[in-house]
Design a protein around this nucleic acid. Structure first.
Length: 123
DNA sequence: AATTTGACAGCGA
DNA sequence: GTCGCTGCCAAAT
């Protein structure tokens, strides 16, 4: 959040919201643009999320590689600096890929409702 | 100030 | 499953 300050200054403050959300994506999980937009309270601004991430400030600790489209495809043409890198990073984090090279969303889509809680039997 | 563009998503055919 | 069209809103020109 601190590193974001500089970014939010140079970009719209809407961006900072997206960035902070993306930062909450745990390793081994991925989120979609629409999902992030939804969490930000702008369900129809999926494109803006992508546009925000396009700035992808290298200074900040934004795991932009954990953001894919709704089909689990790693869309960015440059695919994080070089083709295949994003998939490799996600794999290294434990993200499961399907035969088509897409992320298995059913298994690896981040569920913001369930943070990282260990205790599940706590009614 | 107006138009085009873009790391998307949803719906219908 | 694919393909095309529409909605969306900030940035760039």
């Amino acid at each position: 959040m601190i590193e974001i300050m500089g970014v939010m200054k140079m970009s719209g403050l809407v961006f900072s919201v997206f960035y902070s959300i993306v930062q909450r994506i745990p390793a081994g999980k991925v989120a979609t643009y629409g999902q992030i937009a939804r969490l930000a309270g702008m369900p129809r601004s999926a494109r803006i999320v992508g546009y925000a991430l396009a700035s992808c400030p290298p200074e900040s600790n934004i795991p932009c590689h954990r953001v894919v489209d709704r089909l689990g495809r790693t869309k960015p043409a440059f695919d994080m600096y070089s083709p295949g890198t994003q998939r490799a990073m996600l794999k290294a984090e434990g993200v499961v890929f399907r035969s088509g090279g897409t992320v298995d969303m059913a298994l690896c889509q981040w569920n913001p409702e369930e943070p990282v809680s260990f205790q599940d039997s706590c009614p």
